[in-house]
Amino acid sequence: MTRLLSAWQSGDALALERLTPLIYEELRDRARRYMKNERAGHTLQATAVVHEAFVKLVEMNISWQDRAHFFAVAARQMRRILVDHAKARYRSKRGGTNTTTTGMIDELPMTESMGMGPVTSGDIDVLEIDEALQRLATHNLRLSEIVELHYFGGLTYQELAETLKVSEATIDRDLRLAKAWILRQIRPQRPRDPEGV
């Protein structure tokens, strides 16, 4: 994949063609990791987001250094799409102009199924995570990058270790602290969304 990335960057159109499904699959696999507690069959829901992220990635005219770089950019893209969407959604709710929900059959009870783990997660939203992550960056930039790669880029501990060239144990320690840190940031001041997004 790295080889294809650099071939593409050096103007090999064929490389893009061969890279395309790879990237798409890669993104989708990563997106799927968030659904791992969902029943199989519902795992492909993120298709639309993935598709969008993919199109953005392909449209980007940047110089790819390697696979790690690619994932850093992809994670950033994912984060941006989700955050932008949450902001738009928040705005439209505050403005009371909800154009889409009238008479809709809800496809899936999504948030309801998410409440698991020691701390209830049902009402953490992605904007809060984004803000906490920004604050984390001021304290420890490296940690915030790991979190971004992990949560938005979908990289596993093992992949993180390989990408950042540290041990898996280090990743584990770092992420553990980072997660607690972010959760602590979110919990005390979390504004409750009445519609429970």
């Binding site: 659904m35 993120a46 987001v49 969407h85 959604r89 948030t111 783990g117 953490i124 949560y151 997004v197």
Partner: peptide, 18 residues
């Protein structure tokens, strides 16, 4: 981590709205 669930939910909702 609840963050995982939160991100999953965000992905779902974004996808659905798209």
């Amino acid at each position: 981590s609840p963050l995982t669930h939160a991100l999953g939910a965000a992905l779902n909702i974004t996808s659905r709205d798209r």
